[in-house]
Design a protein around this nucleic acid. Structure first.
Length: 465
RNA sequence: GGCGGCUUAGCCAAGGGGUAAGGCGGAGGUCUGCAAAACCUCUAUUCUCCGGUUCGAAUCCGGAAGCCGCCUCCA
């Protein structure tokens, strides 16, 4: 089966194709660096990561760009409250974001362009929109005229003529010709303080949407393959990006628009404004393993809402442990007689795994395939043992799967001398049938996060997750 | 009001015309000094409800109920 994605633009699953043969250019809307990102934000990052990794698995060369929004109301307010320059304020959160990304085993994008470093590109884009009559100036700000772009609404399936002025339509929008027009460039305001740029389109700062158009086109070209992000961005952000970009270039902007659903908490979308969020740091401080969080976030299909619970996180951790135990046991396989069924099991697993991900990145099903493989191999090992060469083949396939899933990264397992000595001491105690001492050592080590397993091959240990 | 989505076991979650993947939890068992760990086996006659289409419906169509999202700076 060919690779297919659900495209928000066409509202159906479409066979994937690229603008340039063998090469995928993709862009994901990244964080606004005014605070630590919450795990709902990271759901989008993990979705982008799986997408990128699977495209690479399929043999595509991927150029991946994720922007950093470092100038908007929130970053300006935040820096002013702390009385520090905008860049100093945003740097802290940008660094934190990159650290979080690393903790979640998300492969870095090729570039993380910052809005403030691309003012000239945005200025050029705004000028071009003004020249073509798609934008107008009013009281120092420049707005996009949606009436000049008849296709406006094609992504979000919105009929602008029926737009109802809801509670969230701000009262001061009178400067615009139509309510749905949006700011490309915001004229300087006292509230902006020292945050402004003197440009040919005026003194001020960029609107939100323009940065993604300017930066994605700069790094990926006017017409590229994939643009991803959370569903909340479909309207207005992505709709506006399309309008700006296509109006300015006269070309189709992006072929595939992919969106992930929200992370929920107690039946409601996780969001800063509801106060119902957890940052990655919150969870790591509670002792949760970042990879278990990654597991949780990718175990549900990306177009499905996912309710976050600590029970769910616990279950994810235990599932991950099963995977780790499987890999560890494989590494200890010592048999020398090959099991003829292994090849068939592996072949089927690979086929099923790829079919699952080919179908709109069905990560839930792909995980199911992984665990079915675990069960089948364990069963074969249980029945008549597998050889070390069989185990090696299985490990190769598991690692191939993991090049997409990214779950097998573990901390270096290094035992210090003291712990080693304790384990030795316990082994002797058991030989001498001093089980009270043996159990005490086992308990002490468990408190240190080390779990011991007595197997026919001797005592093994592993780190508690 | 407009647009869109969801409802599958105790919990999480795939599937989407041919007779219910997978994980967690639970129950048995193998191994073991052991209530540890690991591994194995079992764990939904049925998919929110009511109609319809069909040889056949969890799946398609119509309706109802409940829940969620977007509708101007939010992943």
């Amino acid at each position: 089966m060919a690779l297919r994605f659900y495209n928000t633009l066409t509202r159906k699953k479409e066979e994937f194709y690229t603008v340039h043969p063998g090469e995928v250019r993709m862009y994901t809307c990244g964080p606004t660096v005014y605070d630590f990102a919450h795990i709902g934000n990271f759901r989008a990052c993990i979705f982008g990561d799986i997408l990128r990794r699977y495209l690479e698995y399929k043999g595509y060369k991927v150029a991946y760009v994720m922007n950093i929004t470092d100038v908007d109301d929130r970053t300006i307010n935040g820096s002013q409250k702390q009385g520090i320059p905008l860049t100093e304020y945003t740097k802290r959160y940008k660094d934190a974001f990159l650290e979080d990304i690393k903790n979640l085993n998300i492969k870095p994008a090729n570039i993380y362009p910052e809005a403030t470093a691309h003012i000239a590109e945005m200025e050029a884009l705004v000028k071009s929109l003004l020249d073509r009559g798609h934008a107008y100036e009013n009281q120092g700000s420049i707005y996009f005229r949606i009436s000049s772009f008849p296709e406006y609404g094609k992504l979000s399936n919105m009929d602008m003529s029926r737009l109802k002025a809801g509670a969230r339509v701000a009262a001061d929008e009178y400067e615009k010709e139509e309510v749905a027009d949006f700011a490309l460039w915001k004229g300087w305001d006292e509230k902006d303080g020292r945050v402004f740029w003197e440009t040919e389109v005026g003194k001020g700062r960029p609107g939100w949407h323009i940065e993604c158009s300017a930066m994605s086109m700069k790094y990926l070209g006017k017409h590229f393959d994939i643009h991803a992000g959370g569903v909340d961005l479909v309207f207005p952000h992505h709709e506006n990006e399309i309008a700006q970009s296509e109006a300015a270039t006269g070309e189709k902007f992006v072929n595939f628009w992919l969106h992930n659903e929200h992370l929920m908490v107690e039946g409601r979308r996780m969001a800063k404004r509801y106060g119902n969020y957890y940052t990655l740091r919150d969870l790591l401080d509670k002792g949760y393993n970042p990879i278990a969080i990654r597991y949780l976030l990718l175990a549900t299909h990306h177009r499905q809402q996912l309710n976050f619970t600590f029970d769910g996180l616990e279950a994810a951790k235990n599932a991950l442990q099963r995977l780790y135990d499987f890999v560890d046991n494989l590494k200890l396989s010592k048999g020398d007689k090959d099991n003829p069924e292994i090849d068939e099991v592996l072949q089927r697993a690979k086929k099923d795994f790829e079919e699952a991900l080919d179908d709109d990145l069905n990560t839930s099903e792909a995980l199911g395939v992984m665990f079915t493989l675990v069960k089948e191999v364990n069963r074969l090992a249980d029945e008549k043992a597998i050889s070390s060469s069989d185990a090696g083949k299985v490990l190769t396939v598991v690692n191939e799967f993991d090049s997409v899933l990214g779950l097998l990264r573990r901390e270096e397992l290094i035992l210090d001398q003291e712990v080693k000595a304790l384990i030795e001491k316990r082994v002797s105690a058991r030989k001498e049938k001093d089980f009270a001492l043996a159990d005490q050592i086992r308990k002490d080590l468990e408190e240190k996060g080390i779990i011991l397993e007595d197997t026919p091959e001797g005592t093994k240990w592993k780190r508690k997750m």
